[in-house]
Nucleic acid binder design. Structure first.
Length: 110
DNA sequence: AACCTGACTTCGG
DNA sequence: TCCGAAGCCAGGT
């Protein structure tokens, strides 16, 4: 793996843009991003783009979490790293390691 | 071309 | 509300 998803793909570009627009202290879900990028149901695809672009493009991938409001990464594989980054931005995790999406979910204007 | 895998989502029990 | 199974999309092998 680790191969880069086609950087030419409109989806990739759109997704990367959306993620860049996520303000500090806010988060978005994969499904949300996918839908905004015009690819409803392509939540999994969003993860691929992040995997391939986050490192090169230095995207705020930490602001993208799953619909449950939790981090999907496994402990030892980025989980702690992402949590730390978010907490540093002001995002609060409850006792169950969940984020209050009602409060932190990014609602793009337009 | 076929099958596998993944930082997901949703539905049913 | 939690858990398991099915459904989804695209890239990798």
């Amino acid at each position: 793996m680790r191969t880069k998803t086609k950087p030419k793909d409109p989806f990739c570009q759109r997704i990367r843009e959306l993620i860049r627009r996520i303000p500090k202290g806010k988060v978005a879900t994969y499904g949300h991003i996918a839908a905004l990028a015009g690819n409803i149901g392509g939540a999994r695809q969003v993860s691929w783009v992040l995997h391939s672009s986050s490192r090169k493009e230095q995207l705020p991938w930490q602001r993208v979490i799953n619909s449950r409001g939790t981090i999907s990464l496994k402990p030892g594989y980025g989980y702690e790293r992402q949590k730390a980054l978010l907490e540093k931005e002001g995002v609060v995790f409850d006792i169950q390691d969940r984020v209050d999406l009602r409060k932190y979910l990014w609602k793009p204007v337009r």
